[in-house]
Design a protein around this nucleic acid. Sequence first.
DNA 1: GCAATGTATGTCAGATTGGACATACATGCA
DNA 2: TGCATGTATGTCCAATCTGACATACATTGC
Lengths: 108, 108
Amino acid sequence: MDRQKRAKLRAAGWMVGTPREFLKLSDEETAFVEFKLALSKTLQAVRASQDLSQVEAAKRLRSSQSRVAKMEASDPSVSVDLLVKSLFRLGAQPGDIAKALRPRRKAA
Amino acid sequence: MDRQKRAKLRAAGWMVGTPREFLKLSDEETAFVEFKLALSKTLQAVRASQDLSQVEAAKRLRSSQSRVAKMEASDPSVSVDLLVKSLFRLGAQPGDIAKALRPRRKAA
DNA sequence: GCAATGTATGTCAGATTGGACATACATGCA
DNA sequence: TGCATGTATGTCCAATCTGACATACATTGC
């Protein structure tokens, strides 16, 4: 995004920048939300790989469609516990989770 | 442990075998407790590497000594959230956590 | 012996979480 | 258009988690 565009958005009342900048998160908080995000994405990938709808996944997880949606959205009301338990219940292996958590290279 | 010894212990009313056998945990439950255990051990290792007592660590974590003890003991009252947050607060990197979670080779 | 230091265990009130439900939104199809 | 399917969002309250405290246990140095 170029400077002009940013300025325009700001003028219109929009927040510009990363969520981190916006919310003024500390390093640990950032690491934690990114950790959760990685798990969320993995869960969504696992569900997709099994060709399940959120409703079907919820059944297997003994939970509800809305919870599944929140899990995949990394909603604040979802704990890492729930994400990890859900991954295991859908058949993910410990190694899959470790792999998902490996830090991604930052884009240049 | 040999068969004779196991038999003696059983006769004396002791449970013999892995916690898994004993508690009849499902695969997912087993994976989950092992996941927590890996984090607990990592936390303990991180604290040791910084040469902190549980009291000192608790201060940095804005928690209490008893919580730290429970975290390191992988107590059921401790969530994965708390473990992960604590690791990050003590300065662990995402990669450290991923590494700790990699499945260990089973002993032959 | 007994302090001092570090760790473990039990309990509890307040905070957070999670399943369930309602409902809104989105897309595809006849 | 109406209907089916799939996903997203808000709320509620029962269940779970957590910091704090008390207290027990373990080890070391006097």
